[in-house]
Design a protein around this nucleic acid. Structure first.
Length: 772
DNA sequence: GTAGGGTTAG
């Protein structure tokens, strides 16, 4: 003991006595009742002794008559109870002081002290030690000491030790404490602690074994509510190290708990289902709910079903959703407004608006025997869904309907959805009209309203109006947030006004808006796009400092940017950073590098990278081949280009797309191989690859040079037929050529076809439909 | 239930 005292004594006591006091009087574990005690307990004794101990140096305790009188009063005065001693010891500041006190009691007691006394003192010592530095080593030493002194652990000591060791990862030590504990002290509280530790550390089988013991008929220590809590909260946390409890095991426990008078509440089942869903174990949630259903329909409520339905909707499990709905019916679980909300939302997400409206119609009419009053959430979901598919008229009608037929007031969400719908359709004015109307109706616009309008204006080329509107709103007290700034930053980047974008980024922080990931990355991408990669990498490093680690896409943008600038050293630096951050390169990363090296004429490195790419488990894509192909064509190596093209369609099974054909056709035409280019045009038709404006432009250039007018006229018709819009390059080539050969009329009708191309396409579609 | 960003080949 002296060894321990020597080790513990030099330590300074905790600096904050107030905190210490607060901590020391709090019980160590909830729900653990203190051992039964004689009634001779005097609460004033505790403070008297504690004050005395505090005021006296430990060396003088033995000689202090007052202290001795208080603790060992002469008969027949009542002696302090173990609880009093526990409380006195708890008031001592350090483990060292507490051990001193133990020594004082052990040596000063006139008669051999009651073992219960000593156990209580040790409980307090454990409590103090658990709050000091390096608690586990200290607890271990004090435990060894109590064993040597033959002082049995109290139940609370055991719980404290089990938890402390367990949480420090020393599960075997926890078990040892439990196994060495007196049989009659291994009560439900201690067992709960052990079960909790075992589950947390992934020793599921040990935990189940112990639970079995508790659940056995005739067991002395039965499980209680806390046992259920321990088991199910461990399950909810989902931080399993070892194997997972299967749904059957969970259900087995649930039913055995119930046999012990501990039914799983419907609420807890719902929580469990939700938790399992959230951690991505929807299969286990599914199994759990079904196992519980098997126990009888009255154990499942609509909340649990809704939890699972939400999850199934997110995971696009259409069939399973229908099964649950059917089972709800069979088990007489009444769907509620939330259930229908989930269903409607599900259909809306997949743009199946007619199905969503069908559900809506059914609940209104109660055609399934269930009528539910649709609430504002149902309406908003539908209105948003309609807006997202461009059915704006119906969305507006539905708002009227909710107001007039259902007495349901629209909310700011209702208006936000509608405003977004109109903005996305390019009808900014209608968006503003709705904005005014909502204010007239007394519905306050919020920051989402502001952002919707600002973004709508930005996306429709009204950047300065958007900025004005934003400023105006700010003055009126509607503050923007990171989203507002991001919309504007993005718009200015797209308008190639990088400086303004940078200024806004500054302004954002100054106005108290903390930039988030999207704000940072928007600027990073904008800067990369504008070729200002150094600035981009500076902003990226700011993002990192702010705690937003760059992802693969962000790194790709930077690497691509540096490659385009020919700054290979910086590109390598980025690759290195990427590796250090543990961010994995993907196909795009490889494509960027392959493109760079092949463009630089270093086909050897490009091929090496392609091999590495395959070794890393990636499959070269059409972009990979396109990068190589383009470079071969650029250096005039058309044979190699055609070889890649043939490889793609045969061995590597990457079907060429329009871009691939464009590269080849362009190159062939430029190299006076118009005939081969023409055969590729036929090939596209056979393979069903649609030519686009670039394809035709390349072809026209080649045909013009060879003066193959008839073929060019044919392709002009094809463009019109396929609603492929000519651009200024097309017009440049054709205007010169056709006017020089007197085909002005043809040119005019071609342009007209272009102007009415939309309706042409529409009628063509319509005719096709009618004809089939 | 409502708002913002994104990488590679022509």
């Amino acid at each position: 003991m002296n060894r321990i005292l020597r080790r513990l004594k030099p330590e300074t006591p905790t600096t904050d006595p107030l905190l210490l006091r607060h901590l020391t009087i709090s019980p160590i574990s909830s729900g653990s009742p203190p051992p039964p005690l004689p009634k001779t307990d005097d609460p004033s004794l505790v403070s008297k002794v504690a004050t005395l101990l505090e005021a006296t140096h430990p060396n003088d305790w033995t000689t202090n008559a007052h202290l001795r009188h208080l603790l060992f009063p002469p008969a027949p005065s009542p002696v302090p109870t173990p609880l009093s001693l526990l409380r006195i010891t708890r008031r001592l500041p350090t483990t060292a002081a507490a051990l001193n006190f133990y020594e004082y009691i052990a040596t000063t007691s006139p008669s051999p002290p009651d073992p219960q006394f000593l156990s209580s003192i040790f409980q307090a010592i454990f409590e103090i030690a658990s709050r000091e530095q390096q608690p586990d080593a200290k607890l271990d030493e004090i435990l060894a000491m109590s064993k040597r002194l033959n002082i049995p652990l109290t139940v609370n000591s055991a719980i404290l030790l089990v938890k402390s060791f367990g949480e420090a990862g020393m599960v075997d030590k926890s078990l040892l404490v439990y196994n060495e504990l007196d049989q009659d002290r291994r009560n439900t509280h201690v067992r709960n602690a052990v079960v909790g530790i075992l589950l947390k550390s992934g020793r599921v089988d040990d935990a189940l074994h112990l639970l079995d013991e508790m659940l056995e008929s005739g067991a002395k220590f039965r499980p209680n509510k806390k046992t259920m809590d321990v088991v199910f909260s461990a399950l909810k946390k989902g931080t399993w190290v070892g194997r997972k409890l299967s749904a059957e095991e969970i259900v087995g426990l649930v039913s055995r708990f119930r046999e012990n008078g501990l039914p799983l509440s419907k609420f807890l089942l719902g929580q469990l289902v939700m938790k399992l869903c959230r951690i991505g174990s929807s299969n286990r949630a599914w199994e759990l709910l079904h196992e519980i259903m098997k126990l009888g329909s009255n154990h499942v409520d609509v909340g649990s079903c809704n939890a699972l339905l939400t999850c199934l909707s997110r995971e696009q499990e259409f069939e399973k959703i229908n099964i649950i709905l059917k089972e709800m019916k069979e088990n007489n679980v009444q769907p509620n407004v939330v259930t229908f909300g989930i269903l409607i939302n599900h259909y809306c997400k997949f743009r199946r608006m007619d199905d969503a409206l069908e559900v809506f119609k059914n609940i209104k009419e109660g055609s399934d025997g269930i009528s539910v009053r649709p609430d504002v959430i149902i309406f908003n979901t539908l209105i948003d869904g309609l807006c997202k598919v461009g059915r704006l008229r119906e969305a507006l009608d539905l708002m009227d309907q909710m107001r007039l037929e259902h007495g349901c007031m629209p909310s700011s969400v209702t208006y936000n959805c509608l405003i977004d719908g109109f903005c996305k359709a390019g009808e900014i004015d209608r968006g503003h009209e709705l904005f005014d109307r909502m204010k007239e109706e007394g519905i306050m616009p919020n920051v989402i309203t502001l952002n919707t309008l600002v973004d709508g204006m930005c996306k429709n080329g009204m950047i300065s109006s958007a900025t004005e509107f934003f400023n105006e709103m700010q003055e009126k007290g509607l503050k923007g947030n990171a989203v507002t700034y991001t919309a504007l930053i993005n718009a200015f980047c797209n308008a190639n006004n990088i400086d303004k974008a940078m200024n806004l980024f500054d302004e954002m922080s100054k106005s108290g808006c903390i930039p988030d990931v999207r704000a940072y990355f928007t600027l990073v991408f904008g800067l990369c796009q504008a070729g200002r990669v150094d600035d981009a990498s500076f902003i990226a490093s700011m993002a990192k400092k702010a705690g937003f680690g760059l992802d693969t896409i962000c790194y790709n943008a930077l690497i691509g940017g540096f490659c385009r600038k020919g700054k290979m050293d910086r590109a390598y630096e980025m690759l290195k950073n990427m590796e250090q951050d543990g961010v994995k390169p993907d196909t795009v990363t490889y494509n960027i590098l392959i493109s760079y090296f092949s463009k630089a004429g270093d086909f050897e490195t490009a091929h090496r990278l392609m091999k590495k790419m395959i070794n890393d488990g990636f499959v070269p894509t059409v972009v990979t081949y396109g990068a190589l192909l383009n470079s071969f064509c650029l250096v005039g190596n058309l044979d190699e280009g055609m070889k890649i093209f043939r490889d793609m369609s045969s061995t590597s099974r990457v079907p060429p797309n329009t871009v691939i054909y464009n590269i080849l056709i362009d190159s062939l035409c430029k190299n006076q191989k118009v005939d081969v280019a023409l055969s590729l045009m036929d090939d596209m038709k056979t393979k069903g690859v649609r030519p686009n404006t670039t394809t035709f432009n390349a072809m026209f250039k080649g045909l013009c040079e060879k003066n193959l007018l008839e073929i060019a006229l044919k392709y002009m018709d094809q463009m019109t037929e396929e609603a492929c819009d000519p651009d200024y390059i097309t017009m440049e080539i054709l205007t010169d050529w056709l006017s020089s050969v007197g085909k002005i009329e043809k040119l005019r009708s071609f342009v007209q076809g272009y102007r009415v191309s939309d309706s042409t396409a529409e009628s063509a579609l319509l005719n096709g439909k009618l004809g089939s």
